[in-house]
Design a protein around this nucleic acid. Structure first.
Length: 261
DNA sequence: ATGGTCGCTTGGCGA
């Protein structure tokens, strides 16, 4: 069995209690974090030192930052991918480790939000998605499990948006972003939540502003993706919405997948 | 078209 989760925590230092609670009550074998928003020196290791995790970090000051918690010893570590148009921003972390469902290459990624549609930042987001697709295709393997989790900042299908009409042509919902995301999935990667729940409409993010969560104005922009070797072992995949109801929540909630042999 | 709320930091920026 392998239980893996991804969560954009919007600052690890502001989410210490929620992340600690998640680790001790949900007991994932591997946890992928995004938007840790601190340097590796600032990372609150003490909070987690009593828990059975190896931690790999790729942080930076104030913004971005990704991390991976793993119960299994971490072998290789990569903090960037070839073709990343913004390699100075900490948005990518890849590890390998041996798991009960086979040797696995696991990635935590934070895709740029993109700002205003048509802006320079938006163009960089599209380039990032292109570069990430090319990289992921280049590391495909029939032997390894390949699992990518993170905040992709794209809602690829109408069912992933609270209101496709209202959100038409807004950031995360434009046709060109959807094309990039679908191209990234291609034939190589499965969207695990959608495989497990073909018709469910659930979201992974709700805006802090305008009472987004209370009105269920959300998007599904956080994903766990897997190659065929891993996807065929999928037992379940779900979104744990409960973490959005806590005091001082992240604006994102965990997405969880369980694999078996 | 703007602002709504957070988290970084302490004046705005990013989301």
């Amino acid at each position: 069995m392998l239980k893996i989760a991804t969560w954009n925590v919007n600052s690890i230092r502001s989410r210490l209690e929620h992340v600690s609670d998640f680790l001790s009550s949900q007991i994932p074998d591997i946890l992928l974090l995004q938007e840790t928003k601190c340097t590796d020196d600032q990372f609150p290791h003490d909070q987690f030192s009593s828990m059975p995790y190896n931690v790999s970090l790729h942080g930076q000051k104030s913004y971005n930052g990704v991390a991976i918690f793993s119960k299994y010893p971490i072998d290789e570590v990569k903090t960037n991918f070839d073709g990343n148009p913004i390699p100075d921003q900490a948005r990518f972390l890849e590890i390998t480790c041996n798991t009960p469902v086979g040797y696995s290459r696991i990635i935590s990624v934070y895709v740029p939000n993109g700002g205003e549609v048509g802006s320079d930042k938006f163009a960089i987001k599209l380039d990032f998605l292109d570069g990430l697709k090319a990289y992921l295709d280049s590391i495909q393997s029939k032997d390894e499990n390949l699992i990518i989790g993170g905040d992709f900042n794209v809602a690829p299908f109408d069912i992933d948006l609270y209101d496709p009409e209202v959100l038409k042509n807004t950031t995360c919902c434009t046709e060109v972003e959807k094309e990039k995301m679908l191209a990234l999935l291609g034939d190589n990667f499965a969207d695990l939540y959608r495989i497990a729940n073909p018709d469910l409409q659930e979201f992974s993010w709700w805006d802090y502003r305008s009472a987004g969560f209370a009105r269920n104005h959300g998007l599904r922009i956080d994903f766990l993706l897997a190659n065929e070797n891993a996807a065929r072992k999928l037992k379940e995949c779900y979104i744990d919405k409960s973490y959005r109801s806590l005091k001082k929540p992240s604006d994102h909630v965990p997405v969880v997948a369980v694999f078996g042999v």
